[in-house]
């Protein structure tokens, strides 16, 4: 189980990834995060809402109201071009971080 502090910097990245193909709404996003991480990361509702609100403020996503067949009014989020750009940047950043940090991770087999 990953705690939210550890992964804080990449919540935005994760959410944007899930919006690359098509728009989605809050619950579906959190569900896919849970599933795709194999249950190892369960994003808190407040963290998720915080993140999408921030992304919307930065212009990386836009929101619109949509109707499911059940008639429930849900807020859908759609990624923007700026969001795609931001996502690419974060992916590059992650590669860099992964490479840098790995220098300092002790290999358990080398003890």
């Amino acid at each position: 189980m990953i705690s939210s502090d550890v992964i804080r910097g990449y919540n935005d990245t994760i959410i944007l990834f899930l919006l690359l193909k098509s728009p989605s709404y809050g619950y579906e996003i959190s569900k896919r995060i849970r599933e795709m991480s194999g249950g190892k990361y369960i994003i808190k509702e407040t963290t998720l809402y915080s993140a999408v609100t921030r992304l919307e403020k930065n212009g990386c996503v836009t929101s619109f109201a949509g109707n499911e067949n059940s008639g429930k009014r849900r807020t859908y989020y759609r990624i923007t071009e700026k969001g795609r750009q931001y996502y690419r940047e974060k992916c590059q950043e992650w590669s860099l971080v992964k490479e840098v940090v790995s220098h300092f991770i002790a290999d358990p087999t080398e003890e």
Binding site: G26, Y27, S30, K31, E45, T46, L48, Y49, T53, K72, R74, T75
Partner: peptide, 16 residues
């Protein structure tokens, strides 16, 4: 809006 969104998410999760 925050309250409604959070509630909607929790409702969906509860249903699941």
């Amino acid at each position: 809006r925050a309250k409604e969104e959070l509630w909607a998410m929790m409702e969906d999760r509860f249903g699941e």
